[in-house]
Amino acid sequence: MNVRETNQIDSFRALALQVTCSAVNQASDRSEAASLMQKSINRLASQIAASIAFIGSDCRLIVLPEYFLTGFPLGESLAFWAEKAALDMAGAEYEALGKIAQKHNIFLAGNAYELDPNFPGLYFQTCFVIAPNGSIVLRYRRLNSMFAPTPHDVWDRYLDCYGLEGVFPVAKTEIGNLAAIASEEILYPEIARSLALRGAEIFLHSTSEVYGKERSPKEAAKISRAVENMAYLVSANTAGIINTPIPSASVDGGSKILDYRGIVLAETATGESMAAFAEIDLTALRRYRRRPGLNNLLSRQRLELYTESYSKSHFYPANTMLEQEVDRQHFLHTQQSVIERLAALGII
């Protein structure tokens, strides 16, 4: 982990910016998709500038929704989606987003499909954080995905390239220790806990999910992840996805910020909105974490109780994409075999 910044900011404002995703599925090739992505970035630049003007210059962290530049694949093969919609790790899109972060002196977080030269032919869904100097200070690859490659699918090689700290990265910055959780991974408590064990204080949650009056499992999970890890959570949802056959408002609304007690500090309804902004008080968070008592759940963890159960259990297998090219049916077939095996063992 990085050494903690000496120029610490005690408190600042964060924004979960709820914006419409303009999908690139209808683009015929990379050139057309890149043009659409640049239009989205240009629109974001104006929205971010206007939001900061309203909130104030102490807005130092902005979180964008899941795959905000591209939408998600709708039947495209892995290879075609990688070619058309995945970003290069040092590509023009990151450079353009970096200029926005520099201009406004903010940490800008988001989520995109990304290529990695260490894994030709694959892409990963990547959460990133760009610092005020324009450089990427955090790159987290989604570990649980139904229909996309993950580091776990090429596990041995991924560990050789990045190590375990690269699987669970925490960026120690002037605005606190930042970590990312991708979309439905909010339902996997082990991910947030692994990040908290590495010092995470603020979870950045880029998502694209159904929002409604009834609290969904993901809504309950957001509160749980904040409480059990004593961390802030900034969750940015899409304001719908356009340019696909799916009704555009299917994933629209509910961006929010929760504090380390699970209290919702700000929340927006549907549509494009900058209403989900709130103060992040690092001094209060750290004081809360260092106070003995019933609510200090981190200090009361007895991790040795669980290690054997985890180490002896094998569910979804690693390395299934290490030496073979696959299509999207691979993920369903693998899951079905896991279900059958767990049923035979009497686990489910």
Rank of each mutant, 00 (worst) to 15 (best):
Val167Leu: 15
Pro132Met: 01
Ile246Glu: 14
Ile263Trp: 01
Arg341Asn: 10
Leu78Gly: 07
Glu93Ile: 11
Asp259Arg: 07
Ser216Ala: 09
Thr307Glu: 15
Arg261Met: 10
Gln8Cys: 13
Ala92Ser: 11
Leu64Tyr: 04
Leu143Met: 15
Leu108Met: 04
Gly91Phe: 07
Pro65Gln: 08
Asn133Tyr: 11
Gly199His: 05
Tyr94Trp: 13
Thr207Phe: 06
Leu164His: 01
Leu204Val: 14
Leu36Lys: 07
Leu164Cys: 02
Ser77Pro: 05
Thr334Phe: 04
Val227Phe: 02
Ile257Met: 05
Ala192Trp: 00
Leu303Tyr: 09
Tyr288Ile: 01
Gln102Thr: 14
Phe68Asp: 01
Ala179Cys: 04
Leu282Trp: 07
Ala16Val: 08
Val170Thr: 10
Met230Ser: 15
Ser248Lys: 08
Ile263Gly: 02
Met89Ile: 10
Pro317Asp: 10
Gly254Asp: 00
Asp327Ala: 01
Arg225Cys: 06
Ile223Met: 02
Arg4Met: 12
Asn118Thr: 07
Pro245Asn: 05
Val210Gln: 15
Gly56Pro: 05
Asn42Ser: 09
Ala182Ile: 12
Ala276Asp: 02
His314Ser: 09
Glu219Ala: 14
Ala92Tyr: 04
Ile348Asn: 09
Pro317Val: 14
Ile202Asn: 10
Ser31Cys: 00
Thr307Asp: 07
Tyr316Gly: 04
Gly240His: 00
Leu164Val: 03
Asp29Ile: 03
Met274Ile: 15
Leu322Val: 13
Ile106Gln: 03
Ala182Thr: 12
Ile280Cys: 09
Ala86Glu: 11
Ile263Cys: 05
Thr268Pro: 03
Ser273Arg: 09
Ala220Tyr: 03
Met146Thr: 08
Leu159Val: 08
Val63Asp: 02
Thr238Ile: 01
Ser337Lys: 09
Ala269Val: 01
Asp153Cys: 10
Tyr67Ala: 13
Ser248Met: 05
Thr270Cys: 01
Arg198Pro: 04
Asn144Phe: 10
Pro65His: 05
Gly176Pro: 00
Ala221Tyr: 01
Arg291Cys: 00
Glu185Gln: 14
Ala196Thr: 09
Lys218Ser: 00
Glu165His: 07
Phe203Lys: 12
Thr320Ala: 02
Tyr232Lys: 05
Gly199Glu: 06
Ala23Trp: 00
Ala16Asp: 09
Arg139Gln: 08
Ala49Pro: 08
Ala249Pro: 06
Glu83Pro: 07
Ser311Asp: 12
Glu190Ile: 03
Ile9Leu: 15
Gly91Tyr: 11
Tyr67Gln: 10
Gly56Cys: 00
Ser183Gly: 08
Ser51Met: 01
Tyr310Gln: 14
Phe54Cys: 04
Ala14Gln: 07
Lys172Ile: 10
Gln125Ala: 13
Leu265Arg: 09
Glu83Gly: 03
Leu187Ser: 11
Tyr288Met: 02
Gly98Gln: 15
Ile246Ser: 07
Tyr158Asp: 08
Ala196Lys: 07
Leu342Thr: 13
Thr283Gly: 12
Tyr188Trp: 06
Ala85His: 13
Asn25Pro: 06
